[in-house]
Nucleic acid binder design. Structure first.
Lengths: 205, 205
DNA sequence: GAGATGTAAATAACAACGTTATAATAAATA
DNA sequence: TATTTATTATAACGTTGTTATTTACATCTC
């Protein structure tokens, strides 16, 4: 009986935690980073700001939850890429990553831009990025075994490919790849060219 | 006489403007983004916050000045790269970019991270990035003429190379390329591997 | 030259933010 | 039942960007 009470307690607590994170997530997506204030989040679930501090400690703690959520969404989007020939799959993973950034720009900013001035993501949070790199790593491993990529350190290769892709999308989201006055240079072209180039380069021994 | 007074006025005004931007720049480098508040900047030159608003309008206006300064510093660092064989020069330009990011992480954040929640850089500011891409473009043009890179659209190629390099440095600065538990993976290795791979890929017809 | 005028600066205030001290309320323990 | 603990709501504090108000001052008009 007492145990049930306690269990209910922690469950309720966890539910409240999830509800707050969910509200924060919704605010982030629908109204952007500006709307993501402690008062606004609390108001969204009709609670006081105090609960945010008992559950998350401070705003950084709440952001850690958003990190996890963001990485999870990204991972799910990557894992939803259907199987295909090794190299095609790698290309499609890259395209899925781009699509994630474009459809969730605010989450992308939370994950990869420093949206809180003095806040550097903790080692624990950085470790949350592991599964994303892992998805790329297995696809790369397949490519190496199919001999469409040169055999090399898989982890390093994954980081190289991920970084290149990430660079294009970062610049694109800020607006640095927009056309300047003359011909309309499509960001997608740059993206595809970057992917094909880096893969070509990594295919050589 | 009257003209001299007016001239002196605008000169004084411009001097004050430069002084404020300089103070902001110093604060940004020495104490980071957290210290970059309107009150702190004004205090640094012993003035009231009001002058900041008459000269820059608001904080975003002041940040536009920092954008220009940041891009200028980056351009200078790139132009300081000594001439060498085309491909070597391109590699050294990449390394200079990396060095800029590592020695000026806060400026890097201003230029490429969205440090003000609701603020997207204006087209004018984005155009400030032109000279940087241009430095890469001429080096790439040389590489194409020397036939160490395949002939292609120079502007597009510049963006591809820049994006790949930028991706590595972005991830590195946030901390995502740090070693995870086992072998100490040097970020520099990833950087060099990314550059050589993308250049190899772009060398093929 | 004296008063009107318009501009820029200093001061103080405002709204909103993250955070915390205080007080009240519920629950667990003895 | 009494007491201690934990959690919440309320209100407040300090700081932020920004603005209203006042004050100083240089310029223009008569």
């Amino acid at each position: 009986m007492i145990k049930n009470y306690r269990l209910a307690k922690v469950e309720q607590r966890e539910a409240l935690r999830c509800g707050l994170l969910d509200a924060a997530s919704r605010l982030l997506v629908s109204e952007g980073l500006e709307a993501l204030t402690m008062r606004r989040i609390a108001e969204e679930v009709q609670a006081s700001t105090q609960v945010l501090y008992t559950l998350f400690g401070n705003k950084e703690g709440l952001f850690e939850g958003l990190y996890r959520e963001g990485f999870d969404r990204l991972r799910q989007q990557l894992e939803a890429v259907p199987p295909s020939a090794p190299l095609d799959r790698l290309l499609n993973l890259g395209r899925a990553y781009r699509e994630f950034g474009q459809s969730n720009p605010t989450y992308f900013a939370v994950l990869f831009s420093q949206v809180i001035p003095g806040f550097t993501p903790s080692p624990e949070i950085i470790q949350e990025a592991g599964p994303i790199l892992e998805v790329f790593a297995v696809a790369i491993q397949d490519c190496m075994e199919a001999e469409v990529l040169a055999k090399a350190d898989v982890s390093q290769t994954a980081k190289v490919i991920f970084a290149a892709i990430h660079g294009v999308i970062s610049l694109e989201l800020i607006g640095y790849l927009k056309k300047q006055s003359d011909q309309p240079e499509l960001s997608q072209q740059i993206f595809e060219l970057t992917m094909s180039s880096i893969l070509k380069g990594l295919a050589m021994t």
